[in-house]
């Protein structure tokens, strides 16, 4: 069972990835629940480019806006948050515990200059979407060429 599958664009890495999966499974790590494997960063993020902005999406089911802190400095976006275990549920009452818990922190280097003042974020069905508008200088700019007389 592969713990994680890369997309088709990563075919070149597929064999390596499978090999790493196999190695990790043979080590029989205790932390091996689906989608979150030792050494993998949490939360998993995707990065997209649009004509006027970059878009980061992160899988953060159950996280509320007030449990999340986003900061941006020197082209690095930092996300910090915590998964709160349900109230009134003592540890010994759990029959299964697979969902991630505790404090997490993740930093992402941004690919280009962004307008850090205009950063906006929203939660949609447990997916965090961070909109990072591109700074003006990275947009293509026409340079007028003057003819000398």
């Amino acid at each position: 069972m592969a713990l994680f599958r890369w997309g088709h664009s990563w075919d070149a890495f597929h064999d390596l990835e499978r090999e790493v999966d196999r190695l990790l499974q043979s080590v029989n790590l205790s932390l091996s629940f689906q989608g979150l494997r030792f050494g993998r960063q949490y939360p998993p993020v995707n990065l997209y480019e649009l004509p006027t902005e970059y878009l980061i999406t992160a899988e953060l089911p159950g996280v509320k806006s007030e449990e999340l802190e986003l900061t941006i400095a020197n082209g690095v976006l930092s996300m910090t948050g915590r998964h709160i275990s349900p109230e009134g549920a003592a540890e010994e009452r759990f029959r299964r515990q697979e969902r991630p818990r505790g404090v997490w922190q993740r930093s992402i280097s941004l690919p280009d200059r962004v307008k850090s003042d205009n950063l906006s974020a929203e939660f949609v069905n447990g997916i965090l979407k961070i909109h990072l508008p591109k700074a003006d200088e990275v947009k293509p700019r026409q340079i007028p060429v003057a003819f000398g007389t």
């Binding site: 599958r5 890369w6 997309g7 664009s9 990563w10 989608g35 960063q41 998993p44 993020v45 995707n46 990065l47 997209y48 480019e49 649009l50 004509p51 970059y54 878009l55 999406t57 899988e59 690919p111 949609v124 069905n125 997916i127 979407k129």
Partner: peptide, 16 residues
């Protein structure tokens, strides 16, 4: 559901 616009170009992927 795919939550990004159609014209979004994927640069980096960690979940599908």
């Amino acid at each position: 559901e795919q939550s990004v616009p159609d014209n979004a170009r994927l640069l980096h992927q960690e979940y599908e």
